Deep mutational scan, measured.
Amino acid sequence: DEWTVEDKVLFEQAFSFHGKSFHRIQQMLPDKTIASLVKYYYSWKKTR
């Protein structure tokens, strides 16, 4: 599952609005599965 720079920026924006409500985040990133969002979240969180 490839994440473009745009995907990553959108994820951060969606996360700032919705927190860990992955269903709502998915509405902003409809091409990503919930599982993909959760997996990305945990790898992204480690870099914070």
Rank of each mutant, 00 (worst) to 15 (best):
V5T: 09
Q26K: 15
P30L: 00
K45S: 13
S43P: 02
F22T: 03
D7W: 03
V38Y: 14
I25Y: 08
F22R: 00
V9S: 13
M28W: 07
K32W: 00
K32E: 01
Y41E: 08
K45M: 14
L10Y: 09
D7N: 02
H18E: 00
V38R: 13
Q26C: 12
L10R: 12
R24S: 09
K45C: 06
Y41R: 05
Y42E: 14
S36P: 01
L10F: 05
K46H: 15
K32C: 02
K45T: 12
G19W: 03
W3S: 05
P30V: 04
K32R: 08
T47R: 13
K32N: 02
A35L: 13
F17R: 14
H23S: 13
V9I: 14
K32D: 00
F17H: 12
I25V: 03
K39C: 07
K8F: 01
S36I: 08
M28V: 12
H18N: 02
S16A: 13
Q13M: 13
D31A: 09
E12G: 04
H18G: 03
D7R: 01
T47N: 13
D31S: 15
S21D: 15
T33I: 00
K8I: 10
K8A: 06
M28T: 09
L37H: 12
L37R: 01
K8R: 09
A35Y: 09
E12T: 11
S21P: 05
Q27D: 06
A14Y: 07
S36C: 14
H18S: 04
I25R: 00
G19I: 05
R24N: 07
V5D: 13
K32V: 00
F22L: 04
L29D: 02
F17W: 06
W3Y: 10
S43R: 14
F17T: 15
L37D: 09
D31I: 03
K8V: 06
E12L: 08
I25C: 01
I25S: 00
V38E: 13
L29G: 02
S43N: 12
K46C: 00
H18W: 01
T4C: 05
K45E: 07
F17Y: 07
E6D: 09
V9Q: 10
A14C: 04
K39D: 07
F15Q: 02
F15P: 01
E2F: 13
T33Y: 04
M28A: 10
Q26E: 00
D31L: 11
S21Q: 15
A14N: 02
Y41T: 03
K46Y: 10
L10H: 05
D7I: 08
S16P: 07
V5I: 11
D31C: 09
H18T: 10
F15M: 04
H23P: 10
L29V: 04
A35I: 13
E12V: 02
I34S: 04
H23E: 13
Y41L: 06
P30T: 03
F22K: 07
Y41C: 08
V38S: 12
H18Y: 14
A14T: 06
Y40R: 00
T47E: 08
D31E: 14
E2L: 07
L29F: 11
K46F: 08
E12M: 02
K39F: 02
D7T: 04
Y42I: 13
Q13T: 01
E2T: 11
E2S: 09
I25M: 04
Y42D: 15
V5S: 11
Q13V: 15
E2A: 02
L37T: 08
H18M: 01
R24V: 08
M28H: 10
P30Y: 04
R24I: 06
F11G: 03
E2P: 13
F15T: 06
T47V: 03
K46W: 04
Y40V: 02
F17L: 12
I25L: 10
K8W: 00
Y42S: 14
Q26W: 02
A14K: 10
E2D: 06
Y42P: 02
W3I: 09
H18Q: 01
T33K: 13
W44A: 02
S21R: 15
T47I: 06
F22S: 01
S16G: 13
F22M: 07
K8C: 04
K45N: 14
K46T: 03
T4N: 11
A14E: 02
H23A: 12
I25P: 07
K39V: 03
R24L: 07
Y40I: 10
Y42K: 15
Y41K: 09
H23L: 14
S43C: 14
